[in-house]
Nucleic acid binder design. Structure first.
Lengths: 208, 208
DNA sequence: AGCTGTATACCCCGTATGATGTATTTTAAA
DNA sequence: TTTAAAATACATCATACGGGGTATACAGCT
């Protein structure tokens, strides 16, 4: 099963990089690279009709950027894997790319041999990324700190499920008055004035 | 700066694995492994007082598991990096570990040479993980599908910021009546009856 | 012994909210 | 070109909600 050929497409506006990548990839055993596009528009128009397994996508493209292109193409062709290949390594680019459907995120200074390895990895269901980039993603999982007490967290969770004062009170065997007091305290601790904002903040800070 | 020695601690209940790892790591140039613990409790008691850079943590430990141990230790010693070293690769274990503060997640069948490389990576601010595990993490970023219109999304975002009918109406130059109608439609599309649940669902599905 | 935080419980009050309707216009797809 | 979806707007009504208070009891910390 490792003998299968991986069919690749490149989307990259820089003529030289595009040509170089194309030659390297198409010349390597087990790889085929017959398609290269200089912009998002032509890629979006053509790729859905091509027998492609993996797309190498630059982020900085002339009109429409590579993240948008990935979003549209991934919607049309969910089985194609996308690897972002870019100079940008800021958090926003990384997360947007992943949300758009990218399966890998590599920097352009990755050497050709590693690139081939990474393309194989994606093709076999992996997600290659430098360990520096992996760290940024992992850091997004951490909880900063939790000002809420256990009781308050419990109540906030129930509120996020759509329960009202009375229902929450019944659920946790408390007086509705007490629940109200807890909610007031939650608002004050999170510096918000209503339920909507409280839940938003709590989720963003991974409190619930 | 690559000449610095990485000080390692191991937490692993299996006697043989612990000894083997200990010998390999301590015998390698640039690495020092003087501490090995068979359970979470002893590790939690000792590690805060030891000069340790990286901890290799097994998940399956006798009483308290490795994820809990990581959570407690990371809280006490934020500068120590934790690598989970385990046979389990289920989604829950991965995400819980990362939320608990782990910086890497490797399977036990990782060969010793790679393990050394990965420890170096963590020490230098990276996050090593197999590309299979990376893929699972990345998949958690994807959006399933968005039933909301642009206008509705816009309004829901404003609601999550804590704005009320009137404020939203002003913000988007609409009649409060219209905003109310949009909100009704949002609730119906998300199958909820109130703001709290709507925001909770919307965030969980990455709609806002 | 005093302080702080948490958990519990109650009161009043004005208003924002959600449910249930009707209705027109614009836009996009079939 | 008809149809459907989206966006716009308004009315009524019971009630859930948030802000303002006050109060007791118990925990841990200093």
């Amino acid at each position: 099963m490792d003998r299968e050929i991986v069919h690749i497409a490149i989307v990259e506006d820089d003529h030289e990089i595009r040509q170089t990548l194309n030659l390297i990839l198409d010349g390597s055993k087990g790889f085929s690279c017959k398609y290269a596009f200089p912009d998002a528009e032509s890629a979006i128009a053509s790729i859905p009709n091509l027998p492609v397994d993996v797309v190498l996508m630059d982020i900085d493209l002339p009109h429409k950027n590579g993240i948008e292109a990935t979003r549209e193409l991934k919607r049309k062709c969910p089985s194609i894997d996308f690897i972002m290949l870019t100079v940008q390594s800021d958090d926003d680019s990384i997360f947007e790319s992943l949300c758009a459907g990218a399966s890998g995120y590599l920097l352009k200074d990755t050497n050709p041999v590693d690139l081939l390895v990474h393309i194989k990895e994606v093709f076999n269901g992996g997600s290659p990324m430098s360990s520096q980039i992996a760290r940024r993603i992992i850091n997004s999982f951490r909880i900063i700190d939790n000002p809420l007490s256990e009781r308050e967290t419990e109540i906030l969770k129930l509120l996020s499920q759509g329960l009202n004062y009375k229902d929450v009170a019944q659920e946790v065997f408390l007086s509705p008055h007490t629940v109200k007091t807890h909610i007031k305290n939650i608002y004050s601790k999170l510096h918000v004035n209503n339920r909507a904002e409280a839940i938003y903040k709590a989720i963003k800070q991974k409190l619930i």
